[in-house]
Simulated scan of single mutants.
Amino acid sequence: MEKRKKETTLKPAQLAPVLGRKRDPSLDTSILTATLEMLAEEGFDGMTMDKIAIKVGTGKAACYRRWPSKVKLVKEALIWMNRNQLELEKIPNTGSLRNDFLAVLKPHSMEEANAKLRVLGGLGTFWLDEEIEKKGITEIFGPWTEVNRTLIQRAMERGEISKKANVELVCKVLNSMATYRALIERKPPDKALFIALIDNVIMPALKNPG
């Protein structure tokens, strides 16, 4: 007579999936901060994931778990830098598009402005990466586009500007100005230049599109 096989019953604990360690947001912030500091100090070509890990006081694996390459880490750090500068949760709403634009351009100390310039000036061959060449600048300066688009759309809803205005084109013009100023001229934001651009180019283009 064939013996009946003994059935094995799994307990709930055995059925539950094994979860990994919860990601620590504070470590993310530390890595991104260290990345920006190292870009300013050694440049993209001089920095490595090992150096960043040592600077933070963590293992290299912790960096690679979050960002699979140095290029992706640097791109994320630059986006994070722009988001922090803009404070997206506090987008101005003064009731005037011109004043909203000016409110976005917060006064920064010379030390902060120069630190950002050193970061951007240290990018080197970062710009030669295939992924960055295709859409890197668009993503890095995306937070600025997001804010400008919100401000312009609000003004359009208020009837302050024409509904036929080319919102995306104006956002590109604003971003191009900021990018050229930072990456080509290597100069901090100039409020007088920004005001002239708003008054003589941006506002006329939005109110009276061709």
Rank of each mutant, 00 (worst) to 15 (best):
L183C: 11
L123V: 04
T150S: 14
T35C: 00
P204I: 06
E168A: 13
I198W: 04
W144A: 14
K135P: 06
Y180D: 15
I202G: 02
E185I: 09
W67R: 07
R98K: 12
R98E: 10
E157R: 10
V170F: 03
R181C: 15
T138C: 11
M110I: 10
T8K: 15
E131H: 09
G159K: 01
K60G: 14
K207A: 11
T33C: 00
V119H: 00
D45M: 08
K191A: 13
K135L: 12
K11S: 14
P189V: 06
E42T: 07
L123E: 10
T48I: 05
V119P: 07
L97H: 00
N200Q: 14
S176Y: 10
L128W: 11
K106G: 03
V56L: 03
L73D: 08
K6I: 12
T29A: 12
V170P: 11
Y180F: 12
T125E: 13
S162R: 02
K116N: 13
E146F: 04
L105M: 13
C63N: 12
E37Q: 04
V119Y: 03
A155M: 00
E131I: 07
V74E: 03
G159D: 01
N200H: 13
D190L: 13
R21L: 13
I79G: 09
F141W: 07
R65G: 05
K90G: 01
P68I: 04
M156Y: 00
V104P: 05
S96T: 00
G142F: 07
L88W: 02
A182G: 09
A62G: 04
E160D: 04
L32C: 02
I79T: 14
N84D: 11
N148Q: 10
D190F: 10
T145W: 01
L197M: 15
I137P: 12
E87L: 06
D199Y: 09
K134Q: 13
M156L: 11
V201W: 00
A178C: 09
L123H: 06
G46R: 01
N166E: 10
A53N: 02
R181M: 15
I202M: 05
M38A: 08
F141D: 08
L117D: 11
E7R: 15
I140W: 09
P92I: 03
Q153N: 13
K164R: 09
E185F: 04
C63R: 00
L73E: 03
E146Y: 06
I91P: 01
K106F: 02
M47H: 01
M1K: 12
G121A: 07
K163I: 13
P107A: 01
I161H: 04
I54D: 15
N82C: 10
K55Y: 06
R98I: 07
I132G: 09
L86W: 02
G46C: 01
I202Q: 02
K5Y: 12
T29Q: 11
D24Q: 10
E111F: 02
T138A: 15
K55V: 08
N166V: 00
L97K: 07
I195D: 10
G95W: 04
D45N: 15
Y180I: 02
L193R: 11
K172H: 12
L206Y: 07
A62W: 05
V74L: 03
H108P: 02
C63V: 15
